Simulated scan of single mutants.
Amino acid sequence: MPSRRIVLAHLAAAGCAMPSFAQDDKSPVKLLVGASAGTDFTARVIAEKLKDSLGRPVVVISKLGAGQQVALGELKRSAPDGRTLMLVTSAPFSIYPHIYQKLDYEPLKDFTPIAGVSSFDVGIATGPATAARDMPQLVQWIRSNPKLAIYGSAPGTGSLSHFVGISLGLAIGQALTHVPYKESPVGLVDVSTGRLPMMMTGLSGMIELHKAGKLRVIASSGSQRSPLLPDVPTMTEAGVKVNTTSTVGIFGPAGMPPEVVAPLTKAIIAIASTPEYRDKLAIYNVFPKPATPQELSAVLGDEYKQFAALVKASGYTPE
């Protein structure tokens, strides 16, 4: 008969579908979030289902500040045991290295990719300061009023919204002046009252004002129309060659063992592949995008190159 040690070894191998926590250890897994609104909501949707897979609580902890860098700092300092994870948008990996002279982390070395979960784009809204009701009219207005071509972005400098404005300027050959906003509601009010010609930010925050006729959502920045406003074209469909999105993934600290990463990847991808997940995320204009660690790394690598080219072509001065 096989020895007790051999039997236990086989049981351990069979049970590796979950991270290597002790059976009596029911301490929670922390899922950090460094951004608000749709990102925080996505984290909570995943956490609710992930707790069932892990058999332990999964607690979402918001650590806002410095464009997710506060939360990334905590993740970097955490033990690589699967107890601390973070849901991160791609900006800290694809944009920040090109615009900040010094970062407190190394994007490729200090974190372990676990799974891709979603992507999002932004909407472009105009208001009373411009008569533009679609993208061709906005392009014409910008070219006719270059000194007035001012756009707001939230959450401001270094965000996807900021770079959608840069991309628009490059695509039409007329640079736009950028005004950063920490929060989108303030900028959207400025658009609706005519103090600001246009705003680039998350589409979900624009819906109510758009339907009330206080501003006009004229396009979205990604490759597919939003289910929130299916009649609003993408920028590419509207004749402006801009296709800019942000990938969202879950990461752990550097040095996580494969036997800890693999079951987390499997569980998270399973959650992100369900119709329920898709339907819940739709209210924030967030699209499911399940991906393996290798696929997530490849997408982030492509975004890194895209934004490197944007920064260089725009002449944007790193801070």
Rank of each mutant, 00 (worst) to 15 (best):
G239M: 08
G252H: 05
A17R: 01
L54I: 13
Q294P: 02
G255D: 04
P185E: 07
F41G: 08
S297G: 10
A17C: 10
G194W: 02
H10W: 13
R143Y: 12
I268L: 15
P233I: 01
Q137E: 15
S118K: 02
A272S: 12
S223P: 13
P2K: 01
K305M: 14
V248H: 05
T177N: 06
L176H: 06
T245H: 08
D231M: 07
S94T: 06
S223T: 12
T126F: 12
L264S: 07
L138C: 05
P263D: 11
Q137H: 07
A129S: 09
P230A: 05
G249Q: 14
L300Q: 10
I150L: 07
K289M: 15
I218R: 00
P263S: 08
D279W: 06
P197Y: 06
G82Y: 10
R143Q: 15
G169L: 13
I207N: 15
R216H: 13
Q68I: 01
L11Q: 11
N145K: 03
Q23D: 14
S27Y: 11
V60E: 01
S220L: 07
I124M: 11
G127D: 00
G252A: 11
F251S: 06
L203C: 09
I172G: 07
R133I: 02
A47D: 03
K109I: 14
G252P: 08
L87R: 01
T42Q: 01
V33P: 06
F307V: 05
H162V: 11
Q69A: 11
G173R: 00
I250R: 00
R143H: 14
A238V: 03
V58F: 08
I166T: 12
M198E: 06
L54T: 10
E106I: 11
N243Q: 04
G239A: 08
G222R: 03
V164S: 07
S167I: 02
R216F: 13
L229E: 11
V33Q: 03
P293L: 08
